[in-house]
């Protein structure tokens, strides 16, 4: 992946030198071998901080709305899934097209850093990574490792719809083959088979653990409200009290508020400190969107009407 990193830096440098953008948002090496961290580069000299590899899980499109009123233009490094966020933000009029330069990188999947960290010698530093199809090789100063994708990749990457960014001004790296996964909704289907009581018990168990840290909401690229209903003090729709009732209220509201706009980037699921499988909630909605509205994953191409944001007089829904 060294060539991708090289090209990324060159392109970012060019954009900044030619003053096409004033800021490049990309991935930089994090404080753990298997982690990256968002970097915000505003000078051509700073581009050496940019990196790429199988540890770039974050969806950087989240930051675009922070700069929608900034003076200059912003470039952002996106994977396939993150690119869906860019399209969705454009379709929602959250950002304007002429202010954003999309640097798309075809993505062979992202590894779960905790799983990698458990195998690699603590304190080792990263030298190089490579995609070998079924696995990633990770070279460190304390030895070389191989991580097969099946066991070490983020769950969302195992059924990736868009390895190639669906919107991109500058594409870096080779386009990857697109696969369709019949088992994309396997986990949701399994949950659907359960009785109402069992489903309720399943989610009660999950939601009762919630700390209400709001990481799932804050990391969400399509959570764009200026003041979230859960932060409002007057009236206080949901209190700071954590209990099953309040937590459930929060999670169901969150899931429905992004229904039809959620791009299935899986970030809510990744960042939950309590490992609540939040993506399953949104995936149920995605499955229904497909089954009931024949609607593709939001953001997978420009101009898809939001299933819950459109009204058609010819809607066959009986109760209308």
């Amino acid at each position: 992946m060294m060539d991708v990193i090289q090209q990324l830096r060159e392109q970012a440098k060019k954009l900044l030198e030619e003053k096409k953008v004033t800021l490049v948002i990309g991935f930089g090496q994090g404080t753990e071998l298997a982690r990256t961290t968002p970097v915000f580069i505003d000078s051509p000299e700073g581009v050496s901080a940019l990196t790429w590899g199988p540890f770039c899980a974050n969806n950087l499109a989240k930051y675009l709305t922070d700069y929608k009123n900034a003076e200059g233009n912003v470039a952002v490094v996106v994977k396939g899934c993150d690119a869906r966020s860019v399209i969705r933000l454009l379709d929602d009029n959250q950002i304007s097209r002429d202010k954003v330069v999309v640097i798309g990188v075809p993505c062979p999947g992202q590894l779960e850093w905790q799983k990698v960290a458990a195998e690699v010698k603590p304190g080792a530093s990263l030298k190089e990574t490579a995609d070998n199809g079924e696995s990633f090789s990770v070279k460190t100063d304390a030895g070389d490792y191989s991580f097969n994708k099946k066991d070490y990749m983020l769950h969302r990457c195992l059924v990736c719809e868009n390895p190639n960014p669906v919107i991109s001004d500058i594409t870096i790296g080779k386009e990857l083959p697109v696969k369709t996964y019949e088992e994309r909704f396997a986990e949701v289907s399994e949950l659907e088979q359960k009785s109402t009581e069992d489903k309720s018990a399943y989610w009660d168990k999950q939601f009762s653990r919630c700390l209400r840290c709001y990481a799932c909401r804050n990391v969400c690229s399509v959570c764009t409200c200026q003041i979230c209903v859960f932060d409002q003090m007057l009236p206080m729709w949901v209190s700071k009290r954590t209990n099953l009732s309040e937590n459930t209220m929060f999670h169901i509201t969150r899931a429905f508020h992004v229904a039809g706009r959620c791009v299935d980037c899986g970030e809510c699921d990744r960042v939950c400190p309590m490992d609540i499988p939040l993506r399953k909630l949104n995936q149920k909605i995605h499955k229904d969107l497909g089954d009931l509205f024949d609607s593709p994953t939001p953001g997978s191409k420009p101009g898809i009407p939001s299933a819950l944001g459109e009204f058609s007089p010819g809607d066959p829904e009986e109760f209308m």
């Binding site: 968002p38 700390l211 840290c213 709001y214 990481a215 909401r217 960042v271 400190p273």
Partner: peptide, 10 residues
């Protein structure tokens, strides 16, 4: 710039 403003750390 990168802080998401969630309360996880706290």
């Amino acid at each position: 710039k990168k802080c998401l403003g969630c309360g996880t750390c706290t």
